[in-house]
Nucleic acid binder design. Structure first.
Lengths: 178, 178
DNA sequence: TGCATATCATTAGCCGTGCTAACGGTATCG
DNA sequence: CGATACCGTTAGCACGGCTAATGATATGCA
């Protein structure tokens, strides 16, 4: 209502975004618990699936978390059989992380489940409103200073399955795994 | 770009929102660490400040968390002098939580700090884009099945400082505190 | 009245996820 | 060959979700 009647106050925008993000995640937390995929793992896995194999460090960078955090996250994915850790061909210090075929399946299943759960909620939104959400998500990603193509791959899928900074030296294979 | 050219796929919307929320919160987590106010505490405190005193249970409901979680959250706020726990006048089982004046100050300071940190990022967005974000935040709140007026109080402030479900029987005093 | 049940909040304990610090192993450069 | 830099892991801390169990109070019914 009031939001479009005037120039939005950045303070307000920040607060409302903050609040919305918190509540959205609290909701999703409950949902993805059913597949055993938590939000952070799902997010990391999706980067692997859509972006192809990459090193742990680059994955951490893409997800904007510290290396130890990503290491633990990857360990969880590996233990669940959703990803593999492999030695880097050229750099002995590095580790290449690859989504397993089961990882792809589970990502898709989790995705479908999440959608099923959200379907009732999203149903009451118009196409224009969905558009608004998509646009906002894009803006948030931009504002969060992420490598943008990673995130647009989320939607584009076939258009750009790899992103510039990651595949040049770390994967070596070309992203066709499983 | 492509998002406005067709009817958005709910799956896509869900994924992108999910991802955006994760990354936004990861960013904000770093920011509000400087004031000692974490995201969850800030969110709860803001409900108290904008909504007035309420019981713990209702606060938990408003924030969509379990009672134990909110109890711990409130304990943290109380220990930091940002809120008070008081016995309920009519129901001995209940506890009324009230934001202290310092709580209001700190909320405002944390808010300002968060905004200062986000200023560079939000600066690169147009007014229309900010509008998009605000609209999206509202949609997310709606979709997250929250009591809507709580959240609109975030923006409206003076317009509706109380929200229907909370003040009828739990506060007893009338919401004018401090 | 008195006991059973329901409700509100707290405590206890688990898990996941963020961090920094410290460490081991590898590359790289002098 | 030794010093230094870099990558990843381990260790340990804090926080915030949750469920289960415990007090304490209200309520309802015999």
């Amino acid at each position: 209502m009031a939001s479009t009647l005037r120039s939005p106050d950045p303070a307000e925008v920040a607060d409302r975004l903050h609040s919305a993000a918190i509540h959205l995640l609290r909701r999703v937390r409950r949902i993805d618990g059913e597949t055993g995929l938590t939000a952070a793992r799902l997010s990391a896995l999706s980067v692997l699936v859509f972006g192809g194999p990459t090193t742990l460090g680059r994955l951490a960078q893409a997800e904007q978390v510290s290396a130890p955090t990503m290491s633990r996250l990857v360990s969880a994915l590996v233990e669940e059989g959703l990803a593999r850790r492999e030695p880097h061909a050229e750099d002995g210090r590095s580790v290449v992380v690859t989504a397993s075929s089961r990882g792809r399946e589970v990502l898709e299943r989790g995705r479908e489940r999440r959608i099923a759960e959200l379907a009732d909620l999203l149903d009451e939104l118009s196409a224009a409103e969905l558009d608004t959400l998509v646009a906002a998500a894009g803006l948030v990603e931009r504002v969060s200073a992420l490598p943008p193509s990673v995130r647009s791959a989320y939607a584009g899928a076939t258009a750009e399955r790899r992103w510039s900074g990651l595949s040049d030296d770390s994967t070596g294979s070309g992203g066709t795994s499983g």
